[in-house]
Each structure stands twice: as C-alpha cells, then as structure tokens.
Design a binder for these strands. Sequence first.
RNA 1: GGGUGCGUAGCUCAGUUGGCUAGAGCGCUGCCCUUACAAGGCAGAGGUCACAGGUUCGAGCCCUGUCGCACCCACCA
Length: 857
Amino acid sequence: MAVPDKPSLDGLEAKWSARWDADGTYRFDRSKDRGEIYSIDTPPPTVSGSLHMGSVFGYAQTDSIARYRRMRGDEVFYPMGWDDNGLATERRVQNYYGVRCDPSLPYDPSFEPPRQGEDAKAKEPEVPISRPNFVALCERLTQIDEQAFEDLWRRLALSVDWSLTYTTIGEVAQRASQRAFLHNVARGEAYQAEAPTLWDVDDRTAVAQAELEDKERDGAMHRVRFHGVDGGSDIEIETTRPELIPACVALVAHPDDERFRPRFGSEVASPLFGVRVPVVAHTLADPEKGSGIAMICTFGDVTDVIWWRELQLPMRSVMGRDGRLVAGPPDWEATDPLAEERYNQLAGKTVNQARERVVELLRATGDLIGEPTPIKHPVKFYERGKRPLEIVTTRQWYIRNGARDGALRDALLERGRQLQWHPSHARSRYESWVEGLNTDWLISRQRFFGVPFPVWYRVGEGSEIDYQEPLFASEEHLPVDPSSQAPDGFREEQRGQPGGFIGDPDVLDTWATSSLTPQIADRWEDDPDLFARLFPTDLRPQGGEIIRTWLFATLLRSHLEHDSLPWRDTMINGWVLDPDRKKMSKSKGNVVTPITYFEQFGSDAVRYWALSGRPGVDTAFDEGQMKVGRKLSIKILNASKFVLGVAGDTPGTGADVTAPLDRALLAGLADLVEEATRAFDGYDYARALERTERFFWSFCDDYVELVKQRSYSAETESGTGSATAALQLTLDALLRLFAPHLPFVTEEVWSWWQEGSVHRASWPDVPALRAAAADGASLVYVVAAETLSEVRKAKTTAQVSLRTDVERVVVHDTPERLEALRGAVDDVREATRAQSVELEEAETFSVDVVLAASDAA
RNA sequence: GGGUGCGUAGCUCAGUUGGCUAGAGCGCUGCCCUUACAAGGCAGAGGUCACAGGUUCGAGCCCUGUCGCACCCACCA
C-alpha cells in the first residue's frame, strides 16, 4: 500500500479492528509450550451496567503489556471473560425489566417483561416472576450487555483472542466452580454451619466480610437505665440501638473496671421488659466508651457476636430476615404480660419504627436518661446496599480462609510475598486484609442468578431435612442444578417428599466463581493439556479495590487446590479521578462514558491518556492528555509520510549509515530501545511511552530538520543514502516501540511500506541498531540539535521566518563538543540556512547568529 | 488506633543507583502559511521541589520529625 497524500486518523479503528479479526492477528496458538507462552488472567468485567473510563484505563494498560510480550516473541494467551453471574446482574434485570424474582411462583413459558430500559426505573411496582423466568431474563440482558462490552473493547483495540471468551454463568465456569467446591468439601476446606451472619435485609441474603463497607451515618446515643435487682443499684448504659433491648442477654464491662467489678456475677433487669440479665466481664469492653458498660444483644453488631460466643450467652433474636422485628417476644425465660404487650407493639416494625416506639416507651417509664444525643457513627453496609446490615442466624456454607487458622493464614501471607506485585507496595493492602480476616469465607448466597451448590439434602420420613449428611453431585455430572435434577439414587418425584430429597436452594457467591478465572479460562480439568501450558499464569492485572476479594480469593483457591500461586506477577492499576480528585463512580454520578471520547479524539488518543497513568497511580481524567495523544498520532502519520517520501517505501535502502549525525541518532535510538525494554519488563508501560515520545519529538524537530536537505539530494551524493537509511531504520523502530500504545496509527503506517502486522512484528533489536550505529556518539546529535535550537531562537526573537537565510553562525563551545559538532556541521549549515558555520573554543556553549545582511538588525 | 501512597510551574504530571543553570504537556504570551504536518510549527514567561532539622563535597531524591491530602485495615457500644 502506498503512502497517502493526506494521511488521516479517520476510520482507522473500524478498518483495522476488522482486519485483525479477519487475519486472526491475536489468535492464540495452543501448540506452544509453557515456556513460550505468556498467559494473562484477565479481569472479567462485571456486565451489569454502563461502561466507564475506569475500565478503559486498566484494560488499556494490560493490553499494552500483552502487545509488548507478543512482540518480544511470546505466545500471548489473552482471553476475555464476562462476570455476569450474581447480584449485580439481578439488580440490573429488576430495574431494566421491572420484575422481581419470587421462587415460589411457577414457570410461565409465555412470559414477557412488562417494560424494558433503564429509565423506566421503579415507578410502577415490580412484577413478581418465577425463578426460571427471572434467570432467562438475566441471560437475555447479559447477552446484550456483553455485546456492548465487546464492541467497546474492540474499539479500544484490546488484543484479546475473542474465541477464548468465557462467562462466569457459563457451563465451563459452573463446572469449575462446582468441581472446586466439591474438592474443598472433600479436603475439609468447605463446611456448613448455622451461625450469626451479616444479612442484607433488602436483598435477603447473607454477605461476606469482603463485601462490607463502613458508612458514616447519623445516629443517636441513648442513655438507658437497667434496674438493680437483689438489692443492687441501677446501671446506666449507652446505646445507639435501643430497639434491641428486648434482645439483650447481658451487660458487659472490662474485667479491670473498678466501677463494675463488684457487680460481675450479679444480675440487673432490662427496662420495659424486666428481663434479668447477668453483668459479665470481657476485655473487649472499653471503659472509655459510653458509660463504660455496654449491653450485649443478639445481635446489634459483630462485637455482640464475639461476646455472645465467648461468654456462652443465650440467644434472644428479634430481627427477622426482612428487617422487621419478629412476631412474638424471644425466649425471656420468665414472661411478664406487660413485657409481652410492650414487645407486641414492636413486632412487625422496621428497625427505625421500632426504635422510635422504644424511645417513647422508655421516656414514659422514665428509663431514658436525658434526651438522645445525635452522633455520627460508622455503620456496616453491604457494599451495594441501601440499608445497614443486620445479623441473623442462618445455615450457610463457608470456605476456610485463614481467619481461624494461623497456619493457613501464614501460608497465605507467604504466598503474598512470593507474588511479584507491581507496584510493590500494593502488597501491603493484601497483607492488612489477610491479617484482619475474622471469619471464614461465607460462600452461599440466598439469590437466584448464580452457580448452584451441587448439593442435595435428604428429607426424613417426618419431613425433617437432614443437613448433617448432604448428598453431593459426582464430578462426572457437573454442572448440575439441584433445583431441576435429582441426586444419584433418587427420582425427581421424590423431591420434597418424606424419604426423598430437596436441592440446596442457594447459589455460590460470585467471587466463589470469579476466584477460579485461571481455572476457567485455562480449562482446568476440561482440557488438562491446555491447562498445563497456561497454569500458573504469568500475569494478573486488576484494580486495587478488589485485592481483598478477587485477588485474595483466587490466591486462596489456588493455594488450596494446586498448592501454588495462580500467577507470577500482578499489576495493580490505579483509580480514575475526576478533575475534582474524587474517585469516579456511578453512585457519585460523575462518570463519563468512553464512547464519546473515542469519537472525539480517537482510540489511540484515549489509550494515550490511559497509558500515561503511572502503574498503580490514581490518575485524573484528563481530556488534555487525549488531545496530546491525538496530536502525537497525527504527528506519527505526517512524519512517517515524510520519511517514506524521501527514503522510499521499500524497507531496507541497502545503504550503510556512515554520517556521524546519523550514527549518533541510531546510538540514541539503541539507548531508547534498551530503556523502553527495561521499562516494559518492569510493567512500566508509561515510562516506555514517555521515553519513546520524547525521542520521537526530538527526531521530528531536530533530526529530520538537520538531514532534510541531505536526504533530498540525489542518490549519488555523499551522505544521502546514510540519511535515508537512518530515517527508515528509525521509523521502523519507532513504529514498533509505539505499537503497544498506539495500535491503530502504527498499524496504519506500517501498512504503507511493510508486510504483515506491526503487532506481529518483533520488538526492535538492540544489537542490530548498535551495529548500524557503529561508532556513533550521541554527542554529535546533541550539540547539533542544540545549535539548531539556538538559531531558531535567534530567528524567532528577530521575528523572522525560520527559512530566513543566515549569513554566519558562530558556535562557541568546549573542544570536545566542537569536535562532535564538526561531524554534523554541514547538516547544521543546511538546516539553519547559513552561509557559514564557524566553531570557536569557549568555556561554555553559546551561539552567535548573524542574519543575512538585508534582515540583520 | 495501625498501615500504604502522595504533596515539584496556574493545571495534569515526569524526575530509578544523590551530581553541572529542576523537566514535559496543557493553559498563557509572542513569532512563523518553513515543499511531512496551520485541528500545525518555533520560541518565551512561569517553580522558596509542603515545612523543619540531619547525613553528604553535593539532597527534589537518603534519614528523623511536623503539617496536609487520598486510600486501606481494625472488636468504634
């Protein structure tokens, strides 16, 4: 293809993405051995909403690494996955279609959703539909969303092999998730337990520690009187949750607290309900807080759970799974009709309603001391939740994660040290998370769109369910759906019948699938040959905010299943900040959609912005950087057009590089390649880009200007062949160096004069450049460029055109630098349009410029 | 309470073994239609490198402390 007269960026994205797809440019060759392969464990984006610049930011960075490794000769395994299972999708489906899943409803084969589209948000009540109908809608919408994501990624030029794409709800992922779970069970790493659990009352599901988020909320501190009994005096406590007084099981103070020491072992009676509770001691009670003594309820917060467990207190739960107080008082042992009547005023109320009522009652009985004091305090939320979490007792599945096992915890910390973190300090976030784990990983969710547990339970003759000995699916049948399939040895008709079975109704935490992305993408036991060529993988790129979830969980699963790290390196990308330095997020309403920026500046320009962000560093969203990227791309087009115009569009001019200036350029180019290589090997795509860009601008401004006249000359003249050879060699290398960052424009220029794709070309070869540079000394180029710059400055100061003729240029400099300049003095004379260039020794560098007589000042 | 990162030109940021007058881009100002590029090019102004000590011949870079910002972790009644 020839060099166009008027090069342009328009249409490059569509043209080249189609070509790459047709040519299979990024196709993975699975016949390669492990040692030849560079495998990437790509983050599967959550396909539950709009696309934002944060995704573009991190994925572009990963892609630059993939492209670099490919050019270095590695066979790059770079798949894409879609994380479509889980609550995020369910929420989106609810809003999008105006429906709600009610598992008690029967399947309706002719169901069509009442509405469609996000803006239809929840004016009308949601229509309840069956679980199979709901799951079908989830599948329908995720397919639409996944296509939109793929289009975006293609526009961004992610060099993934699209034939490798997986989804976290897909069959491969389900099989891997269930298999890994069964292995965990077999090794005793997964277990079920009935225990107090953090519970989201809106989504009606248990949530795990990793999904918690503290939020500052307005609250009020209530000072409340507990009544002395058996001759003891009253005790005042402070609480933010007076509605839980009926769930109170004890008061607790620090064992060394002299104020309460005499009371330990005695009892007090709760206000309103008159329930006798013991006064107990525990070191977690803080004498500084409140009145120094706290009430323990089942359960107000996670500290209550610890006290309850360690002090072996009774259970008096009042919180329902719907976030309302349950009907009828808890087991108070001694029941008082008045107390019962008071409790019944609270039953069925939400937390806030119950709190109000309790305060009224306390005020009436005189047990509220003073008025409630407004405070701000942190409250635990599910990270995507609207209301605070409650704690209810439920049966759940867990995987051991080191929270209760020091040896496992130490092993995981050691794994963290074996992993290569980029940047290295990202590891501290992992370590503080592992060190702070306080519960095993709760992996069951009371939700619908997810991977089911491959588990059934026997139903006894009296219809009681036997949770003690679950029936597990056998591995050869995976994936299974226990809600529609019967366990071995049973028939479907026995479902729910005495002597029959029931399926486990829960689904796995989405992270219990996502934590297996290496096994899913690499096809694990489905394709052991492929797995052996890919696992453990080379790179895990991801955001820092999911170190505690995705990274930790993946490392844990790999440690348990394979006794190895899942990857060798991890690259942690930063946040995208809006211009006000706030993290961009949908909830803050400050996100911008990438597509408008692709259209306005071009994909390469958007990538340029993303790849200017240093590894791991939070980076401001900056249109200015995109403008710069666009300018750079256009400059590459034009400079290439010039080079190929004078040097010809046939690669390899055959001439030797002989001129000192040309050799100096190539010596500098070799240095650049070494530096860019070192940067990329350390995952510093930004440094590689910055250095390459700097060299390129100098090449355009200085070198091209210096050799312009010489390269225009007829082939026979001395030095012409040297210049054109150097120009070609440099353009060739620069296109390769820019290719990982700016895939479209480099491919376009490459196509003007080279065979194949630049993205399958090799990374520039330093020894070859050194050989071509021969004795080249960078100083020649440096001094020549500085001299040229001084002359330009003189002309600018004189307010004359740069093509104005110059009578005389006198360069004052040290002998060493003058000697260097001597090799390029003809080029300097031509470029400055000077009649003569004279060199005079001096202590420091300076240039006298005498403009032509007619223009001279 | 513990931890991590960051504080360099009006703005966004480079500055990797401590080394000559601290850099880039944007923005601002001025000049130039130079046969690759006017949706461009060239040049200029602009900085007590948060602050205070210390190590060193020499510190933006190393050490100590202080202040500020962001984030992470934690049993916050």
